[in-house]
Design a protein around this nucleic acid. Structure first.
Lengths: 225, 225
DNA sequence: TCTATTGTTACTTTTATCGCACAGGATGTA
DNA sequence: TACATCCTGTGCGATAAAAGTAACAATAGA
């Protein structure tokens, strides 16, 4: 019947709660947020700590541990580190917020973000935020990189021929997004990523399209070696 | 009696096994490595997938998911991205392998690494590798950044006064390491990190000491704002 | 066509987990 | 000092949750 495991689920929720508290949480606070007894929270913390995913200061709060970095270093190792400077350059060139998203099931998740240094208003694109692949420039760019399907949307077909996708107001009123897939089929089939920018209506789309596609090519080269 | 949770422990072990297989693993392989029945592995996979930590290609293997990046972005967000270019510069300036380590319990764990581009032989310092705080330049640098303890080792006291630690052959015969703590007590108390370099015996220690301390200061400034 | 492998789900058994209870330490207050 | 109030940490029995079995569908290969 139940296809998920309660204990594992609680442990992962605990990990997320710890992640949300940069200043750390006590076991008692953790138990309250999980709505479980403190003894349970204590055992969860002990187990997570055994795997290095969290760490504890003496008698004090719990925070994320170095095991997270180990996992992150295994997840698209080529991308991390190399991509951040590129994203910064893209953000500067387009005066817009640059991001990298990957497909996760039938959703699109932001994994990295860089904001322009200048400008009065900034558009933030929160790392970890997700939305359906069928909505927003990022998802459409990823769908366009897949083999053609008979039920593809018009926007997807257009993005497939042009090499980029441009959407207005699909995720937020007044927001415009441009994205292009990062092509690396030979390296890691199954990993689907795209790079793009998002901004208010005043985005210079010609520049954005050119820069986004240029950076998508650079990223593909960097991770394709 | 048992202070850890078997189900959570298995789930985290599964996550680590998936991380070790960049090309992906099938549920059957995962079940074999965990020494559990396929049905159990299936439920573990479903639960991990629900939290975005792993993702599945259609009918195919399992690999790490975007949730890892979300967690990583919460773990020392200032450090990630900003630090990698600095590490590259440090590696180039010293012609040695540069690294950042953090304290995890009474151990010292490498979380980032950068290797010099030139040179015939490279010294690799694997991300995720760990050793006691009392051994190696990195651990001593972290201990030296803590308030003085009566049972401090001589090397720790010396590192505290000089601002850096230098060890030879403690972790590996013929290896020499230099490290200095990243001081950021006001920002995130409880996070203890250090930066350093490791190389064969031919390290130019004067240059290394100067560069490591300089970069430690830069990193402290960057994350201290 | 037959066989082998894998993913997936229903059902029964059993065991790991839950939640209570209590001990102990640190801190604050009268 | 005595008392109160937080917190962490840990046996132990009842029970809910997970383990294990079996079975089915789908796919691939011989």
């Amino acid at each position: 019947m139940a296809t998920t495991l309660q204990t594992l689920d609680r442990g992962l929720r605990a990990l997320e709660i710890v992640a949300e508290h940069a200043e750390g949480v006590t076991i008692a606070e953790l138990a309250e947020q999980l709505a479980v007894h403190r003894a349970i929270a204590y055992r969860i913390v002990t187990t997570l700590e055994g795997h290095g995913l969290i760490t504890r200061t003496r008698e004090g709060p719990v925070r994320l541990g170095a095991g997270i970095s180990l996992l992150a270093s295994r997840f698209e190792p080529q991308l991390r580190g190399v991509a951040q400077p590129l994203l910064q350059r893209l953000a500067r060139a387009t005066r817009a917020t640059a991001f990298i998203s990957v497909a996760q099931g039938d959703e699109c998740v932001v994994i990295m973000e860089a904001e322009p240094e200048e400008g009065l208003l900034r558009v933030g694109y929160r790392v970890g935020s997700r939305h359906p692949l069928t909505r927003g420039a990022a998802g459409i760019a990823i769908l366009a990189a897949r083999p053609p399907q008979p039920d593809d949307d018009e926007a997807v077909r257009q993005a497939r021929t042009e090499g980029f996708s441009l959407t207005r107001g699909q995720l937020q009123r007044g927001a415009v997004g441009v994205a292009s897939a990062i092509a690396s089929p030979q390296v890691r089939p199954g990993v689907e990523a795209c790079v793009g920018v998002v901004a208010m209506d005043d985005l210079d789309t010609d520049t954005a399209i050119r820069e986004v596609m240029d950076h998508a090519g650079q990223l593909a080269d960097l991770i394709g070696q």
